[in-house]
C-alpha cells in the first residue's frame, strides 16, 4: 500500500466516520484494501425501501487510479436491477473507468451511485447481461465498457 493511498484512505475513513452522506453507512472498513458501504436511495424512486451494498477494493495507486467498485451480490445483498448494473454486481459507469479523477472519493462514488439509481426509469438488466456475466473477468476494471448512455 502506497503511503499516499494509506493516508488518503485514513483521512476519508475519518471523515466518513464523522459524517456520512444521507443514506450511506459504513458496513466494514477494517483495512485499507476492502471497504463495504450500504447505500439506500432516498426519496421517491424505484428502489424505495431497498438497501444495497457497495464494495470498494483499493490498490496502491489510489487515488490516482480508480478503485474497483461493485455491488455486492450474495445471500444478504442483491445487486440492484439497473440498466448499467450487471447481475454479478459490476457497474458500467464512466467515473469508475476512464472518467475517474483523483479528486473523486469513496463518498463521491457512493453519492454518484445514489443519483444513478434514483434517476432510473425502468427496472431492467443491461441488454447483454447474461453474456457478460458468463465471460466477465473477476474485476470490472478489466472490462472495456462502452459508455453510451449519457442520461444517467
Amino acid at each position: 500500500m502506497g503511503s499516499i493511498a494509506t493516508r488518503r484512505l485514513a483521512k476519508e475513513l475519518r471523515e466518513l466516520s464523522l459524517e456520512c452522506p444521507t443514506g450511506i453507512k459504513i458496513l466494514s472498513a477494517n483495512d485499507f484494501h476492502t471497504w463495504r458501504l450500504s447505500i439506500e436511495v432516498m426519496g421517491d424512486s424505484l428502489y424505495q425501501g431497498q438497501v444495497f451494498a457497495l464494495q470498494f477494493i483499493f490498490d496502491a495507486q489510489y487515488p490516482i487510479a480508480s478503485p474497483e467498485v461493485t455491488f455486492v451480490s450474495d445471500e444478504h445483498y442483491k445487486a440492484p436491477i439497473h440498466p448499467h448494473v450487471y447481475s454479478n454486481g459490476h457497474i458500467c459507469a464512466s467515473i469508475l473507468g476512464t472518467e475517474w479523477s483523483p479528486i473523486l472519493s469513496v463518498a463521491a462514488v457512493c453519492v454518484t451511485m445514489q443519483s444513478m439509481l434514483a434517476s432510473c426509469k425502468k427496472l431492467e438488466r443491461p441488454p447483454d447481461n447474461d453474456r457478460y456475466v458468463r465471460h466477465a473477468p473477476k474485476s470490472p476494471k478489466n472490462t472495456r465498457f462502452v459508455y453510451d448512455d449519457d442520461t444517467v
Binding site: 499516499i4 493516508r7 488518503r8 483521512k11 476519508e12 487515488p63 490516482i64 483523483p102 479528486i103 472519493s105
Partner: peptide, 13 residues
C-alpha cells in the same frame, strides 16, 4: 485544522 484551500484534492492533505 488546516484551511481547506491548502488541501491537495488528490491526497486530501
Amino acid at each position: 485544522a488546516v484551511n481547506p484551500n491548502l488541501l491537495c484534492c488528490i491526497c486530501r492533505t
